[in-house]
Each structure stands twice: as structure tokens, then as C-alpha cells.
């Protein structure tokens, strides 16, 4: 499998703080790769570094053979990277429809993709004209993912989709993400280890701004010592 995204030795600073100190992540095409690690380890910053929101000070990020370092976030998005940030970040004052319209890149994106999106998330069709702020947490998460599906994206960066949601909703979202992986490669950040282990086929552990271990998900599931050491859960 060839890697669609290759991160090598990136260092990222936020203000004075050295958040990422040498992170390397390889995301094979068509996979669901999950970034695991404790709170504050640098998972979200890794996604933001890919998007160019917190650009890395050194190291390389290559997507489909193109370097992303030094590019502005909108250029990176236009290359086909969809970003679903933590806490959803939907536009609360805009209706569901308008939220999806903002994400359009080609003028017919919305018309082309709307049916597929609504098939994946039937709730959104029902809530079509409601302001995003009136949606429940799960619906907002669906909207945030749907927004990343409107343009043609080859890679989706999804940050903590299960955060703060009820188990039933999490099941729905997991099913949806699984379906998505047929169309796009997915790089996921997930605290909920059960969710991560069911969804992902590869993992990368981010610990204290570094990426010590990565591999196939199956290897990690059996290794309780490793899980306890880096994730603090069993």
C-alpha cells in the first residue's frame, strides 16, 4: 500500500510552546489510521499542522506527492483534504443547508453530493433549514462530517468524533465513518479506545509530542502493556 499522506519529523510551536517534537505519521491510501494518546499529547496539533493551521517549523508533510509545508490552509483544503475539527466547529447561525453550501468548492458540489450525504445522515435532510446551533451534539457532528464530504476530498482528518456523544449516536457515526472509508482515506483522532479499535486498521501513538510507535491495529489490541503505558486504559 502506498502512503497518501507522509509526515516526517515535524516540529510545531504554538507561541513559545514546542508542542510537536519530532512526529512522523504515515497514512496508507484507503486506510483508516487513528492517532492515539493521552490528552495534550499533540494529536490535535498534528492534524492542525497537516491543515496548515499551526504550520510546522521543520520537517516535511507530503500529500499525494505534494509538499504541504508552507501552504495556506485553504490551498491545502483545495488539494482534497477535508477537516472535521474537534468540538465540531459548525456554523451555529447558519442553517444546515448553508453550512453545506459554504463547503462547496465547485459550483455544483452541493447538488452532486447532497443525495449521497443525506443518505449517509438522513437526520440532516429532516433538519435542512434549521440553524446549526439548534441541532443536538450528534447531529452537529454529522453536519461537520457532511460538510467535509461536499467537495471531492481524498483525505479526511476527523478529530474526536465521539466526544461527548451517547453510545447509540456513536454507533451511528462509526457506521457512517466505516462507509466513508470506501471513498476516502481517513486519519482519525479518537480517545475512545473501543471505538478506535473497531474502526481503524492502523494506529500511531502520539506521546509527549513524539510518535514512538505505530503499526497495524491488530498488534496493539493484544498488547496490554503498551496500551496501559501510552493510553492509561485497558
Amino acid at each position: 500500500m502506498s502512503a497518501i499522506l507522509e509526515i516526517r519529523d515535524i516540529h510545531t510551536f504554538i507561541g513559545q510552546f514546542h508542542i510537536l517534537e519530532n512526529v512522523s505519521v504515515s497514512v496508507p491510501k484507503g486506510s483508516i489510521t487513528v492517532l492515539l494518546g493521552r490528552n495534550g499529547a499533540g494529536k490535535t496539533t498534528t492534524l492542525k499542522s497537516i491543515m496548515g493551521i499551526t504550520p510546522p517549523a521543520s520537517g516535511s508533510i507530503t500529500f499525494n506527492g505534494q509538499s504541504l509545508v508552507g501552504k495556506r490552509p485553504y490551498t491545502i483544503a483545495q488539494l482534497g483534504v477535508g477537516y472535521v475539527p474537534e468540538h465540531r466547529a459548525i456554523f451555529r447561525e447558519l442553517s444546515v443547508r448553508e453550512n453545506l453550501l459554504v463547503a462547496q468548492r465547485g459550483s455544483d458540489d452541493f447538488e452532486r453530493k447532497a443525495d449521497a450525504v443525506f443518505e449517509l445522515f438522513p437526520d440532516l435532510k429532516r433538519l435542512y433549514s434549521l440553524p446549526g446551533g439548534n441541532l443536538s451534539g450528534g447531529q452537529q457532528q454529522m453536519l461537520a462530517i457532511a460538510r467535509a464530504l461536499i467537495p471531492d476530498n481524498h483525505l479526511l482528518l476527523i478529530d474526536e468524533p465521539s466526544e461527548g456523544l451517547a453510545p447509540v449516536i456513536i454507533e451511528q457515526l462509526m457506521a457512517a465513518i466505516e462507509k466513508l472509508s470506501a471513498q476516502a482515506t481517513i486519519l482519525l483522532v479518537e480517545q475512545n479506545f473501543r471505538v478506535a479499535s473497531k474502526l481503524a486498521d492502523r494506529f500511531v501513538i502520539i506521546d509527549d509530542g513524539q510518535s514512538p510507535i505505530s503499526g497495524a491495529m491488530g498488534e496493539l489490541i493484544g498488547d496490554e502493556a503498551l496500551i496501559r503505558r501510552y493510553l492509561g486504559v485497558t
Binding site: Y74, A77, Y83, P85, A89, V102, R105, R147
Partner: peptide
């Protein structure tokens, strides 16, 4: 509402 998010959507 959130200009950073708008940019991250490719605008």
C-alpha cells in the same frame, strides 16, 4: 462566526 474554519474548508 469562525473565519479559521471557513479557510480550512478551502476558501
Amino acid at each position: 462566526e469562525d473565519s479559521g474554519m471557513v479557510e480550512a474548508l478551502g476558501i
